[in-house]
């Protein structure tokens, strides 16, 4: 049983890699596009930095957080959201797949349909996101007041990976809603994504409603803010950061369950 599961996981991982690789080869046919997307990713990520540096040049602390700490949160959240387009940009096409009945073939192949959808495209803008966010993160990590230990580093890595997994799961959930909404565009997921951007600032600045939304109902804060709070050992949030792996696993279970439910509603554009 364990061996079988392991075999299935390895097989799917290989298929996933193969699909993404094939798409990368296809995208690289247009080299200009590749660079434009990466540049767009970098420019978009710089937006928040412009905002932060403009206002923080006039106010030294925001809700008790210094400029490097703000950049740390911003960069950490940027890394986890930047991976989403790289690893699962196909999920953004789910709405149009459903609308046009383009899931038909995926449902007749011996590979998980969710996996086939996720690996249907690669968004190179994510590479730009990652480059910009990683730069911010590095800059901030060298400036924040943290006593580094090997354990520290290991936990931070685990939290970052969990944060990435969580963002992926949340993106799957937000797009899976398309099975019920039946619009050709993933409007719900786009809205959710923008809401997620709010979690790139310290949660304490928001009122109860937004804090509850970003920290619990749609816990984007686990993909950036809570891990940062844990690292910096800030106030009442420190212990929440350590829960990130648990939250990620729960959201993946939810995502897979919801996607299965959604498939049962799929009507192949009703022909």
């Amino acid at each position: 049983m364990v061996a079988e599961t392991l075999f299935a996981v390895r097989r799917n991982a290989r298929l996933y890699r193969r699909s993404l690789g094939a798409v990368v080869r296809a995208v690289l046919e247009y080299v200009a596009d590749f660079w434009i997307l990466i540049a767009a990713g970098i420019v978009t990520q710089s937006l928040g930095l412009v905002f932060l540096s403009v206002v923080m040049s006039r106010v030294p602390h925001l809700n008790g957080w210094s400029y490097p700490e703000m950049v740390l949160i911003y960069g950490l959240a940027g890394v986890s959201s930047g991976i989403v387009p790289v690893l699962s940009d196909g999920i953004w096409q789910l709405a149009s797949f459903i609308h046009n009945g383009q899931l038909d073939y995926a449902l007749t192949r011996p590979a998980p349909p969710l996996m086939q959808v996720m690996s249907a495209w690669v968004g190179f803008n994510g590479v730009g996101d990652l480059v910009a966010s990683a730069a911010m993160l590095t800059w901030a990590l060298t400036r924040v007041d943290v006593h580094w230990t090997p354990l520290n580093v290991l936990i931070l890595l685990i939290l970052m990976i969990s944060g990435i997994a969580l963002r992926l799961a949340m993106c799957v959930v937000a797009n899976t809603v398309s099975f019920w909404l039946r619009m050709p565009m993933p409007m719900f997921a786009m809205t959710a994504w923008q809401v997620g951007e709010l979690a790139r600032y310290p949660l304490g600045i928001y009122g109860f409603g937004l804090r509850f939304l970003l920290g619990a109902a749609a816990p984007f804060a686990f993909a950036g803010f809570f891990p940062a709070a844990w690292l910096l050992d800030r106030g009442g949030y420190a212990w929440l950061g350590i829960l990130t792996p648990v939250v990620a696993v729960l959201w993946w279970i939810f995502a897979v369950w919801l996607f299965r439910r959604g498939l049962r509603r799929y009507d192949s554009a009703g022909h």
Partner: peptide, 23 residues
């Protein structure tokens, strides 16, 4: 049993391709 079933069936929709468009 989609996955198990898919190994024993073949499907073609003439109106739609299953080829990867850019490959």
């Amino acid at each position: 049993n989609r996955v198990a079933n898919s190994r024993q069936i073949g499907v073609l929709f003439g109106q739609r391709t299953q080829l990867w468009w850019d490959l």
